[in-house]
């Protein structure tokens, strides 16, 4: 843990980008209830818990067509 705390300033951009990406995906999941497969709860968990890959998979494969 010491390494994390000592180097917090240079690590913040990395965490911020990952959290922001997850949140953008989460907002999209909650606002657009149409998915190519799966349901809202499943996607909400995936985008928040699977770091980086979750949002990518959601935007590429899971996102439904906009009506």
């Amino acid at each position: 843990m010491d390494i994390l705390l000592d180097n917090l300033p240079i690590l913040i951009p990395l965490f911020a980008a990952q959290v922001a990406f997850g949140l953008i995906a989460l907002v999209h999941v909650l606002k657009h209830p149409h998915y190519r497969f799966g349901n809202k709860i499943m996607w909400a968990f995936i985008v928040m818990l699977v770091n980086m890959i979750g949002p990518i998979v959601y935007f590429i494969f899971g996102r439904g067509e906009e009506q």
Partner: peptide, 16 residues
């Protein structure tokens, strides 16, 4: 369709 966002975020994360 979020291609731009994904590209920017992922490449930024790789850079960091």
């Amino acid at each position: 369709n979020y291609r731009l966002l994904i590209m920017l975020v992922i490449f930024f994360i790789f850079g960091v």
